[in-house]
Structures are given as C-alpha cells and as structure tokens.
Computed example of a mutant assay.
Amino acid sequence: MSTLFTKIVRGEIPAYKVAENSKFLAFLDIRPNAKGHVLCIPKKEIDKIWDLEAEMYQELMRFTRCVAIALEKTVSCKRVGMAVVGLEVPHTHVHLIPLNEMGDMDFSNNVEMSDEEFKELAASIGSKVDL
C-alpha cells in the first residue's frame, strides 16, 4: 500500500508544494510546528533515511539545503532546524522548521494557517529555491 507521501508525489492527494525536481519533493507540513514547516522527501518510497543509497542520501541533503536557504530568506526566524523522525509516515522525510526558540521543535505544538496562507507561503518559499 502506498504511503501518504507517495500519494502526494503521484498527485492523488493535494499538497502545498515548495520545490520539486525529478527525484525529490518539498511541501509544507499541514500540521506545522511553526509557520513555514517544510517536509523534504525522496519521490521513491523508502521507509528509513538510512536505507537510502549513499548517493541518494547526499542528493536529498543537497536538495534539503536549497529549500532551507529559501525558507530562511522567507520566514523570519533565528535558524532553520532540521529533524528526521520518521514515525508518522513510513516514507523518508526531513523536517525543516523555522526556529526562534527550542520549543519550536516540539512536535506536539502546531500552528493554525488558512488555505490561503499555506498557498501564499508555499509560493513565496518556492520562488526563492535555487536547485
């Protein structure tokens, strides 16, 4: 059975896409810890990050770096934090979270955003991604 993220890759489920190339996709988390919380995933369904081939892992990190730089240019924050947890969806994903304090990394905290806010933020971050 396909994961939620594979369904997003296939276009079966909508997402607020930030950046995309032939191997990777970045989109806004719909339950964000902070405004601008982005998920970066390989399009290929692989459960654990350590199961990625070394080259694909490095490519995912390069892709994630480009998105993080764009995110930092878009959302006012002290840093962009990165986390790999992987318990919610069995598909490798890297969380990029704008941080102003350590509590922003607490996954039990979520901010509310409207559909319009998600769309505008995704477009704004995406316009600054230099892949």
Results as ranks from 00 to 15, higher is better:
4 L>D: 12
6 T>H: 06
6 T>N: 07
7 K>S: 13
7 K>Q: 14
7 K>C: 13
8 I>F: 05
9 V>G: 00
10 R>P: 02
11 G>L: 04
11 G>S: 08
11 G>E: 00
12 E>D: 01
12 E>S: 05
13 I>G: 09
13 I>K: 03
14 P>Y: 05
14 P>D: 00
15 A>G: 15
15 A>L: 10
17 K>A: 01
17 K>F: 05
18 V>R: 07
19 A>P: 11
19 A>C: 11
20 E>N: 07
22 S>E: 04
22 S>Q: 03
23 K>G: 13
24 F>E: 04
25 L>G: 06
25 L>H: 05
25 L>C: 07
27 F>N: 05
27 F>L: 01
29 D>T: 12
30 I>E: 13
31 R>Y: 13
31 R>V: 13
34 A>E: 12
34 A>D: 05
34 A>C: 13
34 A>V: 15
35 K>M: 14
35 K>W: 14
36 G>C: 12
39 L>R: 10
39 L>E: 02
39 L>A: 08
40 C>S: 03
41 I>N: 09
42 P>Q: 09
42 P>L: 11
42 P>Y: 06
44 K>Y: 05
44 K>N: 11
46 I>H: 09
47 D>Q: 15
48 K>V: 14
48 K>L: 15
49 I>K: 08
51 D>R: 09
51 D>I: 08
52 L>E: 03
52 L>Q: 02
53 E>G: 12
56 M>R: 12
56 M>V: 12
57 Y>Q: 11
58 Q>E: 14
59 E>K: 15
59 E>V: 15
59 E>S: 15
61 M>Q: 08
64 T>W: 10
65 R>I: 06
66 C>T: 10
66 C>V: 07
67 V>Q: 02
68 A>M: 01
68 A>C: 04
70 A>W: 11
71 L>V: 01
71 L>T: 05
71 L>P: 03
72 E>Q: 11
73 K>V: 13
73 K>G: 14
74 T>S: 00
74 T>A: 02
74 T>V: 11
75 V>H: 00
76 S>G: 15
76 S>Y: 15
77 C>R: 11
77 C>V: 08
79 R>H: 10
81 G>T: 02
81 G>D: 02
82 M>Q: 01
83 A>F: 11
83 A>C: 13
83 A>K: 13
83 A>H: 07
84 V>M: 06
85 V>P: 04
86 G>S: 07
86 G>A: 05
87 L>K: 07
87 L>F: 10
87 L>G: 12
89 V>E: 09
90 P>R: 08
90 P>G: 10
91 H>V: 01
94 V>H: 03
94 V>F: 10
96 L>P: 00
96 L>A: 06
96 L>M: 00
96 L>N: 08
97 I>S: 00
98 P>I: 01
100 N>R: 14
100 N>G: 10
102 M>S: 05
102 M>H: 02
103 G>N: 05
105 M>V: 07
106 D>R: 09
107 F>N: 09
107 F>M: 14
108 S>N: 12
110 N>C: 09
111 V>D: 10
112 E>W: 05
113 M>R: 06
113 M>D: 04
114 S>C: 00
116 E>H: 02
116 E>F: 07
117 E>H: 07
117 E>M: 08
118 F>Y: 15
119 K>P: 14
120 E>R: 06
120 E>N: 03
121 L>N: 08
122 A>T: 09
123 A>M: 03
124 S>K: 04
125 I>D: 00
125 I>E: 07
127 S>G: 03
128 K>V: 09
130 D>V: 14
130 D>W: 09
131 L>D: 13
131 L>Q: 13
131 L>G: 14
